[in-house]
Design a binder for these strands. Structure first.
Lengths: 196, 196
DNA sequence: CCAATATATTAATAATGTTAATTATATTTG
DNA sequence: CAAATATAATTAACATTATTAATATATTGG
């Protein structure tokens, strides 16, 4: 029974890997059961022996991408900033991860979840992602009395919606149209929440 | 030549009306060329004599829905509030319009635009919509010295991204899961930006 | 090694959007 | 008014989706 488990997980991974590659390179709209299966080296129908449907498959990738994003951010922020200043850097890197992989942004926030109530925990995981990334830094700031816990909670919420609102407008509506303007607006808003 | 114009516009309206009805009642995912044409009383291929493609058709509806939304808001806000307080009411009504018609939210902010650079003005129209709705009230607040023009500009931007971020999370990720919690978060955030 | 089971594949179904070819309907001209 | 032409609408066709049922191929247990 052990062997079967291992093999099954291996098969699942072939499809998951293929999905992640297509998603990152070509975008979410190119992730189809046929494309994925072809890249994985199997027939599209085989996929259905391992995944309920295509939504099941693509949302399984979320966790991996969150880990990847975390690494991406760690590589980009300076080692010595702390507290509020660090939150600003994290948010900026978070944004730039999704600018680099718009397909992953779509997966996280745009792609419809089929039976959303049953995926409550996954949805939570997505929506709290930025909060979790900044968690330690918020704690630092509170501990160092740079901010009260109540205000921190407020700002955390503002940050969450504002950052993702910005991304939505820029990635889906090309607004602001110029990258520089987008960066400026982002910076202004981050400074406004995480006041200088 | 005049007659032809009138007839052509009439035909276009049949399809546009059908599209709007389906979108409001059943959501964006039910808007297909075949569904629209059937409701309009024509073959699906006829639609292509009047619209470039289905995206062309659905994005033509945006302006009508913006007008409808404006009316929806006007019907819901109290007559005597002004300035900042009125902005709060407008934002709340704006949000509730999209809660009632999630398909219209998708059309405005989620549905991909094909050749986005060529639709810059339309994209602008969508992204500035809330700003325009609140324009007069912001001017009032500035005139009455309740707020400076610079701060107003900042808050306007915050409002725009925060409100649409909230809607995205709630409509697409069912977050927060309870309607009451969503209202509370909305209220808190509006109060935070448009401080009491 | 053969029979039972598990897994993979092909074929089929029901959608989608879009285009080409064809038919039907107006309109214009002789 | 009838015939020729232009216009408009339809059907047929194609290329995609996702998913399921039926069939073929391995694998495993006795």
């Amino acid at each position: 029974m052990e062997r079967k488990e291992i093999q099954e997980q291996r098969m699942r991974n072939y499809f998951i890997q293929a999905t992640k590659e297509i998603l990152k390179a070509e975008g979410l709209h190119c992730v189809s059961v046929r494309n994925v299966a072809e890249r994985a080296g199997y027939s599209y129908a085989t996929l259905y022996n391992y995944f309920k449907d295509v939504k099941d498959l693509i949302f399984i990738c979320v966790e991996d991408f969150q880990n990847e994003c975390k690494e991406f951010i760690d590589d980009r922020i300076s080692k010595n900033t702390r507290g509020i200043e660090r939150i600003k850097e994290i948010s900026n890197a978070y944004i730039h991860y999704f600018l680099e992989y718009p397909g992953i942004y779509e997966l996280f926030f745009v792609e419809k979840m089929n039976d959303i109530t049953s995926k409550q925990s996954q949805s939570e995981m997505i929506c709290n992602f930025l909060d979790r990334l900044c968690e330690a830094s918020w704690k630092e700031a509170i501990k160092e009395r740079a901010i009260t816990e109540e205000i921190a909670q407020q700002k955390k919420t503002q940050l969450r919606y504002q950052v993702n609102g910005l991304l939505l407008f820029y990635l889906h509506r090309n607004n602001p149209p110029a990258y520089q303007d987008f960066c400026k607006t982002t910076n202004d808003l981050l400074n406004l929440i995480l006041s200088k």
